[in-house]
Design a protein around this nucleic acid. Structure first.
Lengths: 246, 246
DNA sequence: TACAATATGTGTAAAAAATACACACTAACG
DNA sequence: CGTTAGTGTGTATTTTTTACACATATTGTA
């Protein structure tokens, strides 16, 4: 959490004292959830940040978070935060790591559980101006409030690792996408250039992409074929998982 | 946590009420740490469990855990628990996952952070009988108290994955080990048979094992060479980390 | 109306890695 | 001194990864 919203009072700034009271009400050690929400737009990996509503960090950006409620499952809290902020449901959301330094939050003892979420920016409009929410290019994310830089770095690294081993990336793309879009996504996330022919060969040989028989429109060049990821086929495959390599 | 020890009162059973009081003292939502401590002995992967001290789970085994203290870093709490139980310091310890279902603990709201630890069973003696601590073959671990079965399963799967990508396994072996011991370890953890020649080729070609020029003793067959893992060499290597595969 | 710009679609050869597989040797034990 | 159990080693085959070039399709513009 670290940015706490009691109800609809989103615009109002909280004082340290407000938050201390809230933590005391939640009694002793408080638990929060912070969401690192990734999107992909203009061939860049973006992360959704909000202006800190704490005076101490007035100039800084922070992750979206909130204290969990006393009877709320941890995962439910993460979904709630995501849903409140983006209006989205049924999105990719995964717990990444829990941060629990005793001094990490200025208002008291708050242990926070970081979640990583992947959403398709096209598929929804955030009420960005009202909430002081902004999409930031991940390359420009520095100096976040609290220990949010560490949390962000951890989640970004986890994403880089997991996207290579699991079909997560499709959550960031439209349902129908071209191989170029897919490659741009991987290159943006991994911050690396890849060989186009080998990339195509790799994904097509995996045999999880359904050729929709449609072409891109509105591109200023020869349109590429559109594909869809076939989750069912992926689920059925028995992955060989032994391969020592370090 | 879930098994709470106030101080040296290890033998005494706690009631649900005792624990509820403790949680109320720690005020509202409590946070615990549970440690999944792995060892390797007799060519089997073992996990260290303790008899539940909660009446409800009187017959069951559970993980080693405790509530974190109000001013204690999360990682420090995990080390503390490990150290209190095993007497070991400087052991491999890694956070794995946080479990936060609202109803997971019968005594109240307790969110628990699971840690995985790898220790060398030979290198120390636990005061097993006094504490009702026992090493269990991982294959026989079923029906633990609380949601500890889920926690254990999660940690075991994580270990299986990570041991293939990082040099963790050496924490479970003596400093000097033979390739056979190493292979037995991998086979035990992954529950799979591997080709001996290819296994040796793999590890020797990695070039992280130092041939100590010594031989095994006390084996009832031709002794194998002893090796040591060279962490410095490993750290220096720049790992290539791009390889899409799912 | 053609040409410049840009991205698509395709295949092969070479190198590297993973796999399958067998036999002579050594030490301990009885 | 034979039995038992595990060590130490190499090669051929298959699979995977890598590097690399040219004709084609569409849009925008001169």
């Amino acid at each position: 959490m670290d940015t706490i919203f009691s109800e609809k009072a989103a615009g109002r700034l909280k004082t340290l004292r407000n938050i201390q009271t809230e933590i005391q009400q939640s009694e002793g050690i408080a638990i929060s959830v912070d969401c690192v929400i990734f999107g992909f737009d203009e061939n860049k990996l973006k992360v959704l940040l909000i202006r800190s509503d704490l005076k101490k960090y007035i100039q800084k950006w922070s992750l979206l978070g909130d204290l969990i409620k006393i009877n709320e499952d941890l995962d439910d809290a993460a979904y709630r935060i995501l849903n409140e902020r983006t209006g989205l449901a049924n999105v990719y959301l995964e717990q990444v790591h829990t941060f629990g330094h005793a001094k990490r939050h200025p208002a008291g003892r708050v242990v926070t559980v970081a979640y990583c979420s992947l959403i398709n920016i096209q598929h929804h409009q955030l009420n960005i101006l009202e909430n002081e929410l902004h999409w930031h290019d991940v390359k420009s994310v520095t100096d976040l409030a609290f220990d949010h830089q560490e949390i962000f770095d951890t989640c970004y690294k986890r994403l880089q690792k997991r996207i290579q081993e699991h079909p997560l990336g499709f959550n960031l793309l439209p349902k129908k996408f071209s191989l170029r879009e897919l490659q741009n996504l991987y290159e943006a996330i991994l911050d690396a250039k890849m060989d186009r022919r080998n990339f195509r060969k790799k994904f097509l040989s995996m045999d999880f992409l359904t050729d929709l028989g449609e072409l891109e429109t509105d591109v200023p060049h020869r349109p590429g074929k559109l594909y869809q990821f076939n989750y069912k086929k992926y689920e059925k495959k028995d992955k060989k998982w032994i391969g020592i390599d370090f």
